[in-house]
């Protein structure tokens, strides 16, 4: 494997290690659960992204074939991370917060965790 490829892989792995660590540290350091939600949804995305890019560079340098599995992993990560974060946030709101803890929605309807959606015309 050429030196330059090893260098790039090494740098990417260090970056991913740093961000993975910061994300995990954020989980311990931050105080309230919704703040903690920010650490894994963001700080770790770049960590995992760097590992995946390192993996792609490794396989190109080692075998000469481009591996695209990493791109799919990235795509799934970007699709699932916001949904997980949203579910955790909603669960937390439903269990620990009252409507008065949140700002007004500015419309006739409240936030969907606490109030019903507008009535629809029944389908027939």
């Amino acid at each position: 494997m050429p030196f330059i490829a090893e260098l790039i892989i090494a740098i990417l792995l260090v970056i991913s290690g740093v961000f993975g660590f910061v994300g995990s540290y954020g989980l311990i350091k931050l105080k309230d659960p919704l703040q903690r939600l920010h650490a894994p949804t963001k700080a770790t995305t770049l960590g995992i992204g760097a590992v995946l890019i390192a993996s792609m560079v490794y396989f190109v340098a080692k075998t000469g074939h481009v591996s695209v599995h990493e791109l799919i992993i990235t795509l799934f990560l970007f699709l699932t991370a916001p949904i997980t974060a949203n579910f955790i946030a909603k669960t937390y709101m439903a269990r620990n917060l009252k409507v008065s803890d949140l700002p007004k929605s500015g419309t006739d309807y409240g936030w969907s965790v606490f109030s019903d959606p507008p009535k629809r015309e029944p389908l027939d």
């Binding site: 919704l34 939600l37 920010h38 949804t41 963001k42 995305t45 970007f78 699709l79 991370a81 916001p82 949904i83 974060a85 949203n86 946030a89 909603k90 709101m93 949140l102 700002p103 929605s105 500015g106 419309t107 006739d108 309807y109 409240g110 936030w111 969907s112 965790v113 109030s115 019903d116 959606p117 507008p118």
Partner: peptide, 24 residues
Amino acid sequence: GTITMTPGTVSATLASDGSCVLVH
């Protein structure tokens, strides 16, 4: 999804008629 992935914000919930999003 974009709000959740980008700087310091997580989208927490929608207004129940879908006209407003609550961002943390």
